[in-house]
Nucleic acid binder design. Structure first.
Length: 676
DNA sequence: ATACATACC
DNA sequence: TACTGGTATGTAT
């Protein structure tokens, strides 16, 4: 039975926003006081209102959970032999040696700045002007942390220091952070050339191979010097070892060698001692190489545990999780410590009386029954320290977790750009912003040589309500240029506005953020030499997609050189391709792409935006205006519109505009297809 | 395939 | 006065 949900209890900021909750280095501070200040300063803001609405939804979800719990019978919430069996299985698949290492730089951005500005070391300071990116420990004492808006940080420091201190703001300098990050990674790669880093300030290493070579090396030394006493573990020598030699071996290692047996041959204790030494040395190297940046490290049999451990002795410390005592490490942890359990899941669990991992384990039957399968399983795996092995599926035999099987070929799933601005309801301006974003995104995609099959537009209103609408293109159609992006994105934006007006019956569409996301990506192949499609010109010149106010389009400029529908996406991604010859594939693709863009893009004239939002609403498709009061009429019209009357008109228009002399057949086929 | 929510840095 | 940006993934439909 859960405690009060949204009852009379005083509202707490930390329950509403992550930037108010505790973080490493925030010990011994007055959370109540901090909460109070945050709520007072921003409690009525639109942002906070939105957080409350979200929180209400979470509470609703919790109530549903509790309803189900009340109806539950012991058969539902008791564990079962099958579950016990699975849990046991996870545990026995756990690696027996702790070679996973997570290196986490201490307050990275801030630390980078402090190199330059040592005078800020002991006064409250943060990086970031509007939004705080990170803060030093002096500031954390007052509850100032990342993701917190700057002015709240100011208030916290001012008030909690009784006006004696002020929060110093340093503008972010990502070039510097990137440069420092490169230095760090360079050093770390000597210890594991296959390391992964998911952000500028942390890296995931498997020190298994390094350790194996290290131990081998030492073994040889010991042999040549002393005769080892029987039954006695050889001590880890206190002399320094030949690091550069090991680094070299690793550099030339093709990753196919098996090191596991070496580590299994030595005791857990020996392994630990060696690892602690290596990691200590490694952290030292980082500090030297960066001119004084410190980091913390966690060592564990899997990366999630290592990640948690890296936080334990922050800053400038390290923590080892003994594979034989994982449960002792895990059980006392608050559920929130587990990567993947955030503010919301924590709240849900807490409502079920689960606050620690011990609770989670004790309630495993209930959890398994209550949560959706993937979530439930990953929670339960976590409860016994088995984490990170993605998607909660059953692990196929063996502790592949940390061996040299680094899959290099992971391809980025999506790419996006979004921008926040002062709330704006001018349709022309919004569309122009959308085009700017498309431009940025297109550049990113070109740089990364990727093409997208799906485009999503994201809108955040003044109220902080978020909408997203997406469109997947026809089979085999992939796009990149900003014209294409705009051709798809602009109508989606129109659609969002239309639906917002319909649903909320709200005439203003005041927007504070626009974003475009591309997904279902494929890699661009070598430049295609097929004759230039007319699409580029079409998208560029056609009044259907070129705003009259189009100073933002440097028209002829970049539109020429490149074909838009460049590549045949990698063979194998879509087997059906195999049925088409290369050439017909190309034209097929272009034809479909053209159709796609025409179908969607041309329907939305980005020109002729009404200057003011009045008592009229527009058809999201053809932009024709209708009296706001006549909802039925509009809906009727939209249906007609969607049924294609306008499509035909649009296509007739394009016929005159873009003539394709080289391949007139295509045009026929295009129109045939469109008219269907 | 689409929309939305959650999470992480 | 004022609350980010980029990516991945899970859930529900």
């Amino acid at each position: 039975v859960a405690p009060h949900i949204g009852g009379a209890a005083a509202e707490s900021a930390s329950a509403l926003i992550t930037s108010a909750s505790a973080k490493a280095g925030m010990d011994g501070m007055d959370r109540t006081r901090i909460d109070e200040i945050i709520l007072r300063e921003s409690g009525t803001s639109k942002f906070m209102q939105q957080q409350r609405r979200r929180d209400a939804k979470v509470n609703q979800k919790i109530e549903e959970f509790q309803k189900r719990m009340k109806q539950a019978t012991p058969t539902d919430y008791n564990t079962t032999p099958a579950l016990e069996q699975r849990i046991h299985q996870w545990q026995s698949n756990q690696a027996t040696r702790a070679t996973c290492v997570v290196v986490d730089m201490d307050m990275f951005y801030m630390a980078c700045e402090l190199l330059d500005k040592p005078h800020l070391k002991n006064v409250p300071a943060c990086v970031g002007q509007g939004m705080i990116l990170t803060s030093n420990y002096a500031a954390r004492k007052f509850g100032v942390r990342s993701a917190m808006p700057g002015w709240i940080g100011d208030k916290l420091v001012e008030e909690l220091s009784n006006g004696r201190q002020r929060l110093a703001h340093v503008a972010s300098n990502f070039d510097l952070y990137k440069q420092k990050s490169v230095q760090v990674v360079q050093v770390l790669k000597e210890f594991d050339p296959h390391l992964k880093s998911y952000s500028l300030d942390e890296a995931y290493l498997d020190l298994g191979p390094y350790l194996a070579i290290f131990l081998k090396q030492r073994e040889r030394e010991e042999h040549s010097f002393t005769s080892t006493h029987v039954g006695e573990e050889p001590k880890v020598s206190t002399s320094s070892w030949d690091h550069s030699r090991i680094a070299e071996v690793l550099r030339n290692d093709d990753g196919s060698r098996e090191y596991d047996h070496v580590l299994r041959a030595v005791s857990n204790h020996t392994c630990r001692q060696a690892l602690e030494r290596v990691v200590h040395y490694m952290r030292n190297c980082v500090e030297q190489a960066t001119g004084g940046l410190t980091c913390s490290a966690g060592m564990a049999p899997n990366f999630a545990l290592a990640k948690i451990a890296s936080d334990k002795n922050k800053p400038d410390g390290q923590c080892f999780v003994d594979p034989n005592h994982v449960l002792e490490f895990v059980r006392p942890l608050a559920v929130r410590k587990i990567p993947g359990i955030g503010r919301v899941t924590e709240k849900i669990l807490n409502a079920c009386q689960i606050t620690t991992m011990q609770d989670l384990y004790d309630q495993r039957g209930l959890v398994h029954w209550l949560f959706p399968p993937t979530t439930g399983v990953s929670l339960l795996k976590a409860s016994v320290g088995c984490m990170g092995s993605s998607s909660g599926g059953e692990d196929i035999e063996g502790e592949t977790q940390s061996s040299n099987s680094t899959k290099e070929t992971e391809f980025q799933k999506g790419i996006s750009r979004e921008r926040t601005f002062s709330p704006n309801n001018c349709w022309t301006a919004l569309n122009s912003k959308l085009e700017d974003i498309a431009q940025l995104l297109s550049e990113d995609m070109a740089r990364k040589k990727m093409l997208a099959h799906t485009v999503t537009v994201k809108v955040k209103l003044d109220s902080f309500d978020v909408y997203s609408r997406s469109k997947s293109l026809g089979r085999g159609v992939y796009i990149q240029s900003r014209y294409e992006l705009v051709a798809i994105a602009a109508p989606l934006l129109t659609q969002i506005r239309g639906e917002h007006h319909r649903v909320k019956e709200n005439l203003t569409f005041s927007c504070r953020l626009l974003g475009i996301r591309c997904s279902n990506l494929v890699e661009e192949e070598e430049f295609s030499n097929t004759p230039q499609e007319t699409l580029d010109k079409f998208l560029c010149k056609s009044p259907l997609s070129t705003p009259k106010t189009a100073s933002s389009y440097p028209i002829a400029a970049s539109a020429s050189g490149k074909s838009i529908f460049k590549s045949v996406p990698g063979t194998g991604t879509r087997p059906l391709d195999a049925y088409l010859s290369n050439e017909s594939r190309q034209s097929e693709r272009s034809r479909k792409a053209f159709a796609e863009i025409t179908k969607v893009g041309s329907l939305d004239s980005t020109f002729d935006y009404p200057k003011e939002e009045s008592q009229f609403v527009e058809c999201p498709i053809c932009q024709r205006k209708f009296p706001a009061s006549e909802n039925a009429v509009l809906n009727q019209h939209i249906d007609t519109c969607l049924n294609g009357s306008t499509v035909r008109q649009a296509v007739r228009d394009t016929k005159d505009i873009s003539t394709d002399e080289e391949q007139p057949k295509k045009r026929h086929r295009l129109t045939d297809w469109l008219f269907k």
